[in-house]
């Protein structure tokens, strides 16, 4: 009953699309209107926390390699910690916008985990290529939450963060278990039958 890895990537992509949509709308209407209903303030921090929880399931059920398990476990902790800090900020328990730096830390940990658990250099393989792209995108994206921690109302950094979520979602949707991406370059890259 375990889902194929490609399906897991697709399901996670829906979470990233929603994170991006939440941010775009929050920037469009401004934080005052966005927080008019209390539940909306918790939407994207809650989703980040929830996605971290689902990452534990990936760590527990996909046990083909130790590196995979450890990477996803650390990744889950980083996402849940960042989500929890943002929930604290939304609730008012935490006050300093510098807590947004935990999102930057989550991006750095996520990017490193993505690169480490798919570290082989066969970039003509779809899975390897996409994981490298996702990993470096996540590491580069850390600049946006860093910017937001110093300029919390910056539209540039908020929309930049939303764009990164959309980009990662597209990459996750491109995952396929057997379809080659650059199969014409090397016979070692398997072609889908």
């Amino acid at each position: 009953m375990q889902p194929p890895p490609e399906v897991v990537h697709w399901l996670f992509s829906t979470g990233f699309i929603l994170l991006g949509l939440f941010l775009v709308c929050e920037v469009a209407v401004g934080p005052e209107v966005w927080r008019k209903r209390a539940w909306r303030a918790y939407l994207w921090p809650g989703f980040l926390f929830g996605m971290g929880m689902f990452m534990w399931a990936v760590s527990v059920f996909f046990t083909t390699s130790t590196v995979h398990m450890i990477a996803h476990g650390i990744w889950a902790q980083a996402m849940m910690f960042a989500g929890a800090c943002l929930l604290g900020l939304a609730r008012g328990k935490l006050r300093s916008p510098l807590w947004t730096l935990t999102v930057a830390a989550a991006f750095l940990v996520s990017g490193s985990a993505t690169l480490l658990h798919e570290s082989q250099g066969w970039l003509f393989s779809r899975s390897s290529f996409l994981h490298h792209l996702e990993g470096w995108a996540a590491i580069g994206a850390a600049v946006f939450p860093i910017g937001l921690s110093f300029l919390p109302r910056s539209r540039f950094f908020s929309l930049g963060l939303a764009a990164v979520f959309f980009f990662i979602a597209v990459l996750l949707l491109c995952h396929r278990d057997i379809a080659a991406i650059f199969g014409h370059i090397s016979p070692e890259a398997r072609v889908a039958k």
Partner: peptide, 18 residues
């Protein structure tokens, strides 16, 4: 192809649903 999970995870339909 697949079974339950491939019926659940249809990428374009997921995007439409979101």
């Amino acid at each position: 192809k697949g079974g339950f999970w491939y019926l659940l995870g249809e990428p374009p339909l997921l995007v439409i649903l979101v």
